[in-house]
């Protein structure tokens, strides 16, 4: 697999009157499982969209390195898969039709597609539901299909925007098992989530608030440093502290 690392340096982005990103810096190395954790409106989605090239930063830069060599966004784009937060599938297309549509979109050859499709269907356990329209899938299945579509192109980096939002606990666990398997293959994973418990599953977390990353590091290290039992407590304490001021 082609190695890809991403470096976000001091990125600012204003959306209308709101300063969505206010000097975000983070370094994402290949094979890492990174989490961007924060409450709603912290700027997680804007950060992912900026990395994906959907927003141009007002200040700062997003740099890519392919096989340890500096690369442009256009060179890196085919290696990045993105799963948006909003439902992003066609409700009237079946799982099979979705995979075929994304095969054409990513211009994947037939033999590569056949092998990858079988593997993804096995991983997600959606083989039995191939002909079911996306609109009739359960929340967990729907998210898995979204992930399948993103993974069809064998990316080197995977950007997931709140992928487990609204998914039941069992499906969430399956989803995480899938992510661990992908990380084992050397894929860089960056996941934005508002679920604090999910932060502890990441290799490194970046805690975000009001467009800024206020701390980052391995989950255990952060919790020990901040003397908190979990991230939910940490965010509640922080919110109460800012209200007190």
């Amino acid at each position: 697999m082609t190695s890809l690392s991403i470096e976000v340096t001091d990125v600012y982005k204003k959306l209308g009157p709101n300063q969505a990103l206010a000097g975000v810096t983070l370094c994402l190395e290949e094979g890492g499982l990174y989490g961007v954790i924060g409450p709603d409106g912290a700027g997680k989605t804007t950060l992912l969209r900026t990395i994906m090239g959907l927003f141009h930063p007002d200040e700062g830069r997003v740099a890519f390195r392919i096989e340890n060599k500096a690369a442009s966004f256009d060179q890196a784009r085919p290696l990045i898969a993105y799963m948006p937060q909003q439902q992003s599938l066609y409700p009237d297309l079946s799982i099979k039709e979705h995979l075929e549509f994304f095969r054409d979109l990513y211009q994947i050859s037939d033999d590569v597609y056949t092998a990858r499709r079988q593997r993804l269907l096995r991983l997600t356990r959606l083989e039995k539901f191939e002909d079911r329209p996306a609109g009739q899938l359960s929340g967990g299945m729907y998210k898995k299909l979204g992930l399948m579509c993103a993974l069809l192109q064998t990316p080197s980096a995977l950007l997931l925007d709140e992928p487990t939002n609204g998914v039941d606990p069992i499906s969430r666990r399956e989803f995480w098992d899938l992510l661990y398997e992908l990380r084992g293959e050397g894929i860089l994973i960056l996941m934005a989530t508002a679920y604090m418990d999910e932060a502890e599953r990441c290799g490194e977390v970046h805690l975000m608030e009001a467009g800024r990353i206020w701390t980052y590091g391995p989950p255990r290290t952060i919790l020990e440093k901040e003397k908190a039992r979990d991230f939910a407590e940490l965010f509640v304490r922080r919110a109460e502290g800012s209200q007190g001021k």
């Binding site: 959907l54 599938l89 979109l105």
Partner: peptide, 13 residues
């Protein structure tokens, strides 16, 4: 409305 436009824009096309 569906949000699929974002997926299309993020695709390598």
């Amino acid at each position: 409305e569906l949000g699929t436009f974002e997926t299309l824009l993020a695709a390598p096309v």
